[in-house]
Design a protein around this nucleic acid. Sequence first.
DNA 1: TTTATTTCTTACCATAGATCAATGTAGGGT
DNA 2: ACCCTACATTGATCTATGGTAAGAAATAAA
Lengths: 197, 197
Amino acid sequence: MHHNFDRYLKDNWGLTDQELGQLADTIKTRQVRKGDFLLKEGEICTLVFFVEKGLLRFYGLNEDGKENILQFASENWLVSDRGSVYFNEPSHFFIDAIEDAVVVPIDNDFMDLISGISPNFRKCNERLLHNHIRHLNRRIALLLGASAEKRYLHFIKLYPDVMLRVPQWMVASYLGITPESLSRVRRGLADKNFKPL
Amino acid sequence: MHHNFDRYLKDNWGLTDQELGQLADTIKTRQVRKGDFLLKEGEICTLVFFVEKGLLRFYGLNEDGKENILQFASENWLVSDRGSVYFNEPSHFFIDAIEDAVVVPIDNDFMDLISGISPNFRKCNERLLHNHIRHLNRRIALLLGASAEKRYLHFIKLYPDVMLRVPQWMVASYLGITPESLSRVRRGLADKNFKPL
DNA sequence: TTTATTTCTTACCATAGATCAATGTAGGGT
DNA sequence: ACCCTACATTGATCTATGGTAAGAAATAAA
């Protein structure tokens, strides 16, 4: 089962139905249960994961052992330590499942296969990378210059769906604050009669 | 004068001397004086700048009008709002010169030209993008989980050269703290007999 | 040189967010 | 129903960093 991935290949990587047919056999899915790891610190990340269903997180540990969530990935997102994949280096990060999930693991062979089959795959991939960079830049700008409340408001506007599916302490971790602080931020907003959704 | 850029084309974008010859005419340089802007908020960024000489900064303004420096770029670095270039969107950022500088502006035509000439240009560019993403991820992880002092120590280890060429308040802006705080952090380190360099 | 201008430091106080501890609440399993 | 575990809230206090203001030091300008 990988309908989402098929659609993704068409919409984002510019494959035709016919090209898709050629790949059908090579596409496997992988079941992941809540809490399972797809990547641990120190390992070399060899795969990019497409999220067919469920919700994953990409995070690191700081020196005090606290988790810092860099990215959430729900349906139709990619998640990976691209640096580790590309440079064959041990990763500093973890990937695990927040909900039971189904992912499509994409390895370099598969990438080569696609780029052989589909002429504009490389361009589409480049577009993804640029988009990724754009998001990271925005995130950095917010971390540098915006208060916890502003970052929270930005987050729920950008990822309202994720917001509803992850525990609050993970949102806090993504925002770079403690769960207690996030709770107070929310309280503050509620007092100013702010209505999420 | 663009020796650095020529070497860069060979070392990082895999061009041969011969291929380089074909491009020679199309490569122009641009003088920039301290304080001059290469990009302002609201403009669509159409160029990627290679820094032949000098030092630039890439930064944004938060709602209070405070500058948040996302990146410094000294000799042999690229600087640009890639998101704006790629998606033809108005940029949220500024690029200006911290020192008098010489840059090589790279437009999309030039990119197309290179990718026509050099077979492995696309791969090399992809490598750059991945490297960029890797840096941004590390930066985010630090902003989420490390103290001002840790971030500062990381910065001077990673960019000792930049450290010596920019005013301290810009380093502070890069770290996401005030100049006063950075001054105190440095004092604290000095008291613990920390010796930079 | 003298005078401006910018940058850096220091001292004092303010505040956002952290930490610790207690309580509340909801869902799952038995 | 009960207990258990995970999560969220709240209060009290603490700490890192921010804000302000003043002065020192460096740099540029006159």
